[in-house]
Computed example of a mutant assay.
Amino acid sequence: MLTDTILEDPRWEEHGLVDAAEYAATAALVYLKMQPGDFTISLLACDDARIAVLNADFRDKLQPTNVLSWPSQELAADEEGARPDPPEPDRFEDQTELGDIAIAYDTCQREAEAAGKPFDHHVTHLVIHGVLHLLGYDHIRDKDATLMEGIETAVLGKLGIPDPYKD
């Protein structure tokens, strides 16, 4: 499996996150013409309390967030709007670890309800978003955000999920 999911909050089980995360992460890699079987991703499915601690520890933001990512390799492009470098294969393992993602149930639920979107669609989007961060994509600079959002929208479209950036 591409994703190794730890269900710290049991509410995620009701939504089949293990299978949904595998599906979303695989779709992102396939879209980018990467072989999912060559990689692994660790996913922590938690609640707002846990992600708030992680957000404080790693980003100095004392609040919960929807998703956090910790890439195993620094792949970001130097030039704004350029594609990141591909991950370097692990010389000692069959699969290359792309990194870790944490996703918070409470924030995802609140955001989905506020946007009037199905919870499962929002979670799929956030898993894809997290995977792209592991691959060096970001949304700090405008051209990088345009690139990342375009990929997210295209992957979601292939999964039959509407563009999350449209009003």
Results as ranks from 00 to 15, higher is better:
residue 12 W to F: 05
residue 78 D to N: 09
residue 9 D to T: 02
residue 25 A to Q: 06
residue 78 D to Q: 12
residue 145 A to C: 04
residue 57 D to Q: 12
residue 6 I to V: 13
residue 2 L to D: 02
residue 38 D to W: 09
residue 109 Q to N: 14
residue 167 D to S: 15
residue 133 H to N: 04
residue 136 G to L: 05
residue 147 L to I: 00
residue 132 L to P: 00
residue 39 F to Y: 13
residue 66 N to L: 06
residue 22 E to F: 10
residue 115 A to K: 15
residue 125 H to K: 15
residue 90 D to A: 09
residue 115 A to N: 14
residue 99 G to I: 00
residue 48 D to C: 10
residue 45 A to H: 07
residue 130 G to A: 03
residue 150 G to A: 01
residue 135 L to P: 02
residue 67 V to L: 11
residue 29 L to S: 01
residue 108 C to W: 11
residue 39 F to N: 07
residue 41 I to M: 10
residue 121 H to P: 00
residue 70 W to G: 06
residue 75 L to T: 01
residue 59 R to H: 15
residue 3 T to M: 13
residue 140 I to C: 09
residue 130 G to V: 00
residue 25 A to V: 01
residue 63 Q to A: 15
residue 147 L to K: 03
residue 137 Y to L: 03
residue 8 E to P: 06
residue 1 M to V: 05
residue 164 P to M: 06
residue 73 Q to N: 04
residue 14 E to R: 15
residue 139 H to W: 08
residue 148 M to L: 05
residue 124 T to D: 09
residue 14 E to H: 14
residue 91 R to F: 09
residue 158 K to E: 08
residue 166 K to M: 13
residue 43 L to V: 03
residue 68 L to Y: 02
residue 111 E to T: 07
residue 40 T to V: 10
residue 130 G to C: 03
residue 9 D to W: 07
residue 48 D to G: 12
residue 61 K to M: 14
residue 136 G to R: 07
residue 7 L to I: 13
residue 43 L to N: 05
residue 153 T to W: 09
residue 21 A to K: 09
residue 51 I to S: 03
residue 43 L to D: 00
residue 109 Q to P: 01
residue 109 Q to L: 15
residue 69 S to K: 06
residue 44 L to M: 10
residue 8 E to V: 13
residue 60 D to L: 12
residue 54 L to Y: 07
residue 134 L to E: 01
residue 111 E to F: 10
residue 16 G to H: 10
residue 58 F to P: 05
residue 45 A to P: 02
residue 139 H to D: 07
residue 71 P to G: 03
residue 142 D to L: 14
residue 31 Y to V: 00
residue 52 A to R: 12
residue 37 G to L: 12
residue 98 L to E: 01
residue 85 D to Y: 11
residue 48 D to S: 12
residue 27 A to C: 07
residue 65 T to I: 04
residue 104 A to K: 08
residue 38 D to T: 09
residue 138 D to W: 04
residue 86 P to N: 06
residue 116 G to A: 05
residue 74 E to Q: 13
residue 121 H to Y: 12
residue 32 L to R: 08
residue 134 L to A: 01
residue 3 T to I: 09
residue 115 A to M: 14
